[in-house]
C-alpha cells in the first residue's frame, strides 16, 4: 500500500494498483469491513467498468445498474447505502479502484 498513489479524494491514481488487499485497506478507512455482499457489488462495479469504460456517474445510476444486474433486492438505495455509507457510488468506486463517478459531488 505504501507505493499506491491516490488522489486528494482517495481514488487510485493508477487502476493497475488495485488488489483485494488495497480494497480492504481503503474500506477500513471508512470503517467498512468487507463481507461477501460488499465483494459482490465490487465485482459488479469492476465488471461494469470493463464493459462500459465508465463508473456509474451518480448514486441513482449506480442503483439502476445494480438493479439491472443483480435484481431489485440489491438494486435499491437502502441496501447500497447500508453497504457503502455516505455517497454509495463514490464510496464503492473508491474501494473498487475505479475513477470517481463524474456526477457525484
Amino acid at each position: 500500500m505504501a507505493t499506491v498513489v491516490r488522489n486528494t479524494e482517495g481514488f487510485l491514481e493508477n487502476a493497475a494498483d488495485w488488489t483485494e488487499e488495497v480494497a480492504r485497506i481503503i474500506a477500513a478507512e471508512e470503517q467498512i469491513e468487507l463481507d461477501e455482499k460488499h465483494w459482490e457489488s465490487i465485482e459488479f462495479l469492476r465488471f461494469f467498468y470493463k464493459e462500459h469504460e465508465m463508473s456509474p456517474p451518480s448514486n441513482r445510476l449506480f442503483v439502476k445498474a445494480v438493479k439491472e444486474a443483480l435484481g431489485e433486492d440489491k438494486g435499491n438505495s437502502i441496501y447500497l447505502m447500508q453497504l457503502f455509507p455516505g455517497t454509495p457510488a463514490k464510496t464503492a468506486c473508491r474501494i473498487a479502484g475505479l475513477p470517481r463517478p463524474t456526477n457525484c459531488l
Binding site: 464493459e51 462500459h52 469504460e53 456509474p56
Partner: peptide
C-alpha cells in the same frame, strides 16, 4: 480516451 461505443452500451441500463 474512453470508448463512446462502450459508454453508449450503458444507455439502456441507465434508462
Amino acid at each position: 480516451q474512453k470508448s463512446v461505443e462502450r459508454n453508449l452500451k450503458a444507455a439502456a441500463i441507465f434508462g
